[in-house]
Write a protein that binds this DNA or RNA. Structure first.
Length: 202
DNA sequence: GACCAGATTGTCT
DNA sequence: GACAATCTGGTCA
């Protein structure tokens, strides 16, 4: 079953945790690629200087201010894209960054797209999973409720539904502002989560 | 395994 | 003109 709109209208932090264990699916002409979400980060409208929406609406972040249940895909560091799920009511700029997947379906396709055969290296980072799933910048703003890009319940893929006690929260990764907020969530001890946990770097 | 530099470009100040 | 919600490949141990 595809996650309904009501899934995305809850509080952003709640959605970020509830997304763990669900399955992100992308159907293309090349075939289906799907993975279980094992790591997310929440980006909030208020009191969160790391959020793109924090300084108001711009052409780039406009999708974050749109209706929930849509994809926000943006370009970063000159060569990568990040995939987010828009949450919060229309007019409020919040989203959940999908940071890592456990590959489930279309693994050969993912390996080809990523140019590696190492399973753990296919989707263990926000830039990597965008490549592995074949997401493109023109998917920015696409609905996740129908169409080629969707998110499914764990049961749809016979995947386990995580318990509350399996979810760990830590500070987010790769940001400077708001780096102390514990808005990153991942499944405890999961081998497919992205590396670089809490290294101090400048 | 840990740490560091480089790649590369859209976006906002 | 600086910087960014990153990744890869190098060096050193």
């Amino acid at each position: 079953m595809i996650l309904p709109l009501s899934f995305y209208t809850k509080k952003t932090v709640t959605v970020a945790q509830a997304l763990l264990g669900t399955v992100l699916v992308h159907d293309t002409a090349e075939g289906r690629a799907a993975g279980r979400i094992v790591e997310t980060e929440a980006y909030l409208f208020e009191n969160d200087p790391a959020c793109h929406a924090h300084r108001g609406k711009t052409p780039r972040n406009a999708v974050m201010f749109g209706p929930p249940g849509h994809a926000y895909i943006y370009f970063i560091y000159g060569m990568y894209y990040c995939f987010n799920v828009v949450t919060a009511p229309e007019g409020v700029g919040e989203a959940v960054l999908i940071r890592a997947l456990e590959p489930l379906d279309g693994i050969e396709l993912m390996k080809r797209r990523r140019g590696t055969s190492e399973l753990k290296n296919l989707c263990s980072g926000p830039g990597k999973l965008v490549l592995a799933l074949g997401l493109r910048p023109d998917q920015n703003g696409a609905s996740l409720l129908s169409g080629p890009l969707t998110i499914w319940t764990p049961e749809s893929f016979n995947a386990p539904r995580p318990k509350k006690s399996d979810i760990v929260s830590t500070p987010r990764i790769g940001i400077n502002r708001g780096a102390d907020l514990p808005l990153r969530f991942y499944l405890k001890g999961h081998p497919f989560a992205s590396r670089r946990c809490s290294v101090s770097k400048r």
